[in-house]
Amino acid sequence: MKPLTAANKLGIYLPAAPEEFRSAPISRTQLDAWQSDPPEWLTELRRNGPFPRDVVSRKLGISNAGLARAQVPDALTAEEIGVLLADPPEWLLRERESYAAVRAENARLEAKKAERRAATNRPAKNRG
């Protein structure tokens, strides 16, 4: 597989990976080995970053679009994320509220769908 695909599966920021990882195709066997017994460089990247945008957004509790709106760089380190979490700027608080509202609305809609499915699966009442 391509290095970008492998990096996505490993949850790492490709430009921060070693050159030998970035420049050669990765076999499924190699990927499985790294997932079960990560080398030191992979452990270090997972611990301290820099992290890719999707990992950063998850750690901050906001969407990827929220990161883009705030013009946050493509990757942040654990230390940079820690600084944002310790003293959240206004944009982060706003994005968290927005993300929470979207998630709540999605949960409400899913519950409504589940109710409809349950209603259509109920046996008909006996009319006699």
Rank of each mutant, 00 (worst) to 15 (best):
S27H: 02
S27E: 06
S27G: 08
R28D: 15
R28C: 10
R28E: 15
R28S: 13
R28T: 14
T29Y: 00
T29I: 08
Q30H: 13
Q30Y: 08
L31S: 04
L31Y: 01
L31G: 05
L31A: 00
D32G: 10
D32F: 11
D32N: 14
D32I: 08
A33H: 02
A33R: 09
A33W: 05
A33N: 03
A33Q: 02
W34V: 00
Q35P: 03
Q35C: 06
S36A: 03
S36V: 03
D37H: 15
D37M: 12
D37L: 12
P38K: 04
P38R: 04
P39K: 00
P39A: 01
P39F: 03
E40K: 08
E40F: 07
E40D: 11
E40N: 04
W41Q: 04
W41H: 06
W41K: 05
L42G: 07
L42S: 07
L42V: 07
L42D: 07
T43S: 09
E44G: 00
E44H: 06
E44D: 07
E44W: 01
R46L: 14
R47F: 15
R47P: 14
R47S: 15
N48W: 15
N48R: 14
N48A: 13
G49S: 01
G49W: 06
G49P: 04
G49R: 03
G49N: 01
G49K: 00
P50M: 00
P50N: 00
F51C: 06
F51V: 09
F51L: 11
P52W: 01
P52D: 01
R53S: 06
R53G: 05
R53M: 02
R53K: 05
R53A: 04
R53H: 01
D54M: 05
D54W: 02
V55S: 04
V55I: 09
V55F: 04
V55W: 10
V56S: 02
V56K: 01
V56P: 08
V56A: 04
S57D: 11
S57N: 12
R58Q: 15
K59G: 03
K59S: 03
K59M: 09
K59W: 04
L60I: 09
L60P: 06
L60D: 06
G61D: 07
G61W: 04
G61Q: 09
G61Y: 06
G61S: 03
I62L: 05
I62H: 12
S63E: 09
S63T: 08
S63N: 07
S63P: 10
S63V: 07
S63W: 02
N64P: 13
N64A: 15
N64T: 15
N64E: 15
N64S: 15
N64W: 14
N64F: 13
A65T: 09
A65F: 12
A65K: 13
G66D: 12
G66S: 14
G66H: 08
L67P: 06
L67C: 07
L67R: 05
L67V: 08
L67Y: 10
